Simulated assay, not measured.
Amino acid sequence: MTKEPDLFDLPDPQTLYTALQSRDPSYEGRAFVGVTTTGIFCRLTCPARKPLAQNCRWFGTVAECLDAGFRPCRRCHPIATQAEGDPAVQRLLAALEADPGRRWSEADVQAQGFDPSTIRRAFRRHFGMTFLEMARHARLRQGVTRLKTGDPVIEAQLDAGFDSASGFRQAFARLFGHAPKAMQGAAGLWADWIDSPLGGMIAVADSRSLHLLEFVGRKALPAELKRLSKGAGGRIGLGRTPAIDLTEAQLQPYFAGQSGGFSVPLTLHGTPFYRAVWQQLQRIPPGRTVSYGQLARELGRPTATRAEAQANGANQIAILVPCHRVIGADGSLTGYGGGLWRKQALIELETRIAGMA
């Protein structure tokens, strides 16, 4: 996967907020603001009323905004900056904006007079995702919003633009690991979305501690959520807890390159050996990387490299349990469930944080 331009190429948040307030045109197409209170992202030149600084998230590309769960502003049309020279993309974006709940198919794209494969390539080039993926994100986001307010599943499904309850449940289950009805009512654990410069993250917590923090694209996420759901008696709800709020609050200065420390209480689900590995990972300071062999030796288990690597891969609390700090003996990044481009970005960020200490 090719790494997209990211937040770390941008100025600091205060500089960006000043540019937003003055509608500085020099950032046109290079910086975007996501407003957490509305779920909308804008150009910095947007004429809309300016949000408070603490409600802003900063992004370098439209793809990052969409991945983080924000929808484009209807006043400043931020998506247009990425594809102004492509009439086909502009036409489909206009159609999506006019009817964000529509369930699009390749046949619909073809009916508009476009070759589906050409459109797939064009959208991936401009936004890092296909047109159909963009449309599906919009529908699912609407449905999740309705569910969080306590609306019945069928109303959320219709609001999200799915023409069948099974279609909505399938899409929802791919994200959360089980059907949406299982995420309403009294819950033992709560799940919610956290925005990050490297894409959306799912956090699961009880009132006191964090149980899971994963990037949405991680293949193991559905299985991890199913295991947590089983352990909670099927009671994982959609919503916030103080532990999720604290996680989000501490991730903000981390991604801003200001702090590498976390104090969020964690609940680690695994064998005693796995938990020992994860606790050792937390002792690796930001800016330092170790090999699998080094980590095994530091654990006092120098022959357990393979088992240690398995524990590392089974970690389900990204960043706070920093499995990304473990690399190959030859210095290669090796595997990372969130994607090697994210692993590289996290290591680069932490190198800068360590340099400021």
Rank of each mutant, 00 (worst) to 15 (best):
T118W: 10
L20H: 06
I347E: 02
A205N: 07
L7N: 13
F123Y: 08
V326K: 04
L213H: 06
P152M: 06
S26R: 11
A111R: 12
A165Q: 14
L340S: 09
E84N: 09
Q14E: 15
T303Q: 15
P72I: 04
D99M: 06
T305E: 15
D12G: 10
L225Y: 05
G128L: 02
A187Q: 04
P11R: 02
P302R: 05
A94R: 12
R120Y: 15
L349N: 01
G293V: 10
I353F: 05
Q14L: 11
L96T: 08
G217E: 11
D6M: 08
E97P: 13
A83D: 02
D115T: 15
S26P: 12
C46E: 04
T37E: 10
K50C: 12
A80S: 14
T241N: 05
V144L: 11
A309V: 01
P11A: 08
A243H: 03
E84Q: 10
M183I: 06
T149Q: 13
F168Q: 03
E248P: 00
G270P: 07
R124A: 14
H77D: 14
T15H: 06
R240E: 10
P222T: 08
E224W: 10
G217M: 06
S229T: 12
C46S: 03
T271M: 05
F168E: 08
T271D: 12
G167Y: 00
V204M: 07
L333D: 12
S259H: 14
K3Q: 11
L212E: 06
E4Q: 14
V89E: 00
I79W: 00
R169T: 13
F215Y: 09
T118P: 04
G239P: 01
S207A: 10
L140M: 01
I40P: 03
P285R: 04
L221P: 14
A171T: 11
V321W: 03
S209T: 10
M1T: 15
E350P: 13
R139V: 02
E214G: 14
E84T: 07
F262H: 04
R288Q: 13
T241R: 04
D108V: 05
F176E: 08
E4Y: 15
H324R: 00
L175T: 10
G328S: 13
L266K: 04
D115V: 15
G231M: 03
C73W: 00
G338Y: 02
L132N: 13
R297K: 10
A249Y: 12
E106Y: 04
L189A: 06
I194R: 04
Y17Q: 06
L10G: 06
G328E: 14
